[in-house]
Design a protein around this nucleic acid. Structure first.
Lengths: 205, 205, 205, 205
DNA sequence: TATGAATGAGAATTCATTCAT
DNA sequence: GATGAATGAATTCTCATTCAT
């Protein structure tokens, strides 16, 4: 049971939340139109305002839940891993999986970063901070053990989430572009490739 | 002399084009307001419509020129390099430099990829294709020489532009976040780090 | 209860429809300004767009209802008449009366014919077709009985609606021009004169 | 040599005048856009303002010339006719011919009458007055000689110009409507029919 | 809670007209 | 006289938000 499906939201509110998360990811905050949202979820427009105060608030709730889901998942799995090496692999893998499963997240993240985070709701931003802190700890530990090259953690963080976000979000474009009728790799293969690539980049030697 | 400053556009049109490119990168297509644009460039709003037919057309011209500049620069430098290894390094380095110098480009690219390319003007998209083709050729050559690991070129392409776009675009956020008062690396250092990281990921062994 | 006042339209929509029909007749499609319309009916401009999608759609609804009203009235009365002679008289008289009562109709008709019907909404045009078919049937019947001269029905149709439209629509001009202070004939007198004139023109001998 | 082709207008001005007359007839004053006009005559927009002060002035010149041409032709021919009967026939015939040859005239007339003459430039209106006075004289004479029925001259005037204007202007619509592939009558046949019809209506007995 | 209707404040676009050359 | 560029004042249409029921 994820954050959004929890207690406090009724059936209508949940419908709104899900459609809104999709729509915001698809069109961005400015490109999302409340009428269209209402149509999409088959809910009266005024209902949206009844359940969420306004567009900005709705955005905040959507984004916070979206980012929290992924952050929670990544962090909880990382915590279970033993070695720095395993933790790093887990971090990459779980972030990739979370982003794959919640494609609205990398899409939104890209828009927000493009906008220099000016529209990113604070609570959503905090979720990204949690992930960054987690990575920092892993890198520090691995570095101290001589496993990883010494890298700037922030730069590394953005490389990981950047590579994966681009990779995942560009899937529809890739399929459209691909002239050779080569099948796109499966979810796990793709994640595997990308995370290996990144992991490779960080590894000492 | 880059594409935009060429003949064909007068002083006013150029002013509009430059401001618009900035504004679109900053706020996205939907977030950009024509009144604000007119104000920014100190031009009458109707003038914008005189020179460019509408917002969409203006966007197309801006984006095409923006992407063409970077693509031209990358490709021309890659062509000058000798070995596959040097070409790859050049590709990464020049893309990074171009994106650094034209920060509107990675920002826009991120928004467009987030929108699954649905708003990306065709001519701008073609510039990205040129870059992809260039990388493909490099990877093929390097692979045949046994220098590079066998990687999916599309995936690799997105990793390179994804990492760098995130890195460059997140600069303001990084500066804001950075609690420790550590100086941000200089342009060349930053580019160097990131490109080395990526290069490392692709290298055999 | 006429077509416009029927169910389907609420109070506000009806107000808009009535004012718009007047304004379109007065100023034509291009001369009608939405702000002015909003002011005239004391309704917010956005309400117009809420009820009718855009200016063109509003025009279509207005015109269709306007022409339908007159066509319905004419045709239902013609159906009640017995002889071809009576039917022709009824046709002319009822069209004249309808046009007199709904002066927006001849005015609009004139503009539309002047524009070669290029802006006439299809459903409104169909109402004119119904009238033409009705007249055709009358003329055919009267001709077969040897009552009417053999005339081109289309030409006759345009003569009837042309004469009456000009007559009715020119009323304000006539009143303005008329130097001699002769009272304008009453509604029925005027209709009587004109329709007699036309009737005369068609009659055998 | 008609009024427009006379001395005072150069080649460019004449081109503008002709195109403008067409365009005004086609789209009306409000529907005519100066850019479109400039395009149509292949003349720079500023040139139009150089030759004619503004849109209203251009309209006045066009309309005055247009209406004067027809009025002159009708009146000069009527003057040549002997009997009241001949004069009436000539009036109808020449008006029809003039309107046929200058189709912009009936089209404009219809729009102007629909607008209750509110936009009709004074000089153009005066041309219509000249025609009306001519008809009045004819009718009076014919009436006194017992040839014509006693009819309201204004009403009669509008019937004549109304019938003919509708007939002439509706030609494209008639051709479009005509399901039976019956040829449209030739110019003279059509004029003959309509004028006979009208003449019939006025004749005593 | 839900909904159709309403609305003020925009935002895109158009258009007659003017200006500088 | 001619022309490309510029512009202020509309004008159409949109959209987040609120209201009444």
């Amino acid at each position: 049971m994820n954050a959004i499906t929890e207690k406090k939201y009724g059936k209508t509110a949940l419908k709104i939340l899900h459609c809104a998360t999709d729509l915001f990811a698809e069109k961005g905050f400015d490109g999302t139109i409340m009428d269209e949202l209402a149509d999409r979820c088959g809910v009266n427009k005024a209902s949206i305002y009844y359940h969420f105060n306004d567009k900005a608030m709705l955005y905040e709730v959507c984004m916070t839940h979206l980012f929290k889901q992924v952050a929670d998942q990544v962090i909880s799995q990382v915590d279970k891993a033993d070695s720095a090496e395993q933790k790093l692999k887990t971090f990459i893998y779980e972030f990739a999986k979370g982003a794959y499963q919640h494609k609205q997240m990398p899409a939104t993240l890209m828009r927000e970063i493009a906008a220099a985070g000016k529209n990113m709701p604070i609570p959503a931003r905090q979720q990204m901070q949690r992930l960054l802190q987690t990575l920092k700890a892993i890198l520090k530990q691995g570095e101290q053990l001589g496993l990883f090259r010494t890298v700037d953690p922030l730069m590394t963080h953005f490389m990981i989430i950047g590579s994966l976000s681009f990779h995942i979000t560009s899937e529809p474009m890739r399929l459209a572009i691909q002239t050779e009728t080569k099948m796109d790799p499966t979810l796990d293969e793709a994640i595997g490739h990308v995370s290996e690539l990144i992991y490779h980049a960080l590894l000492n030697n």
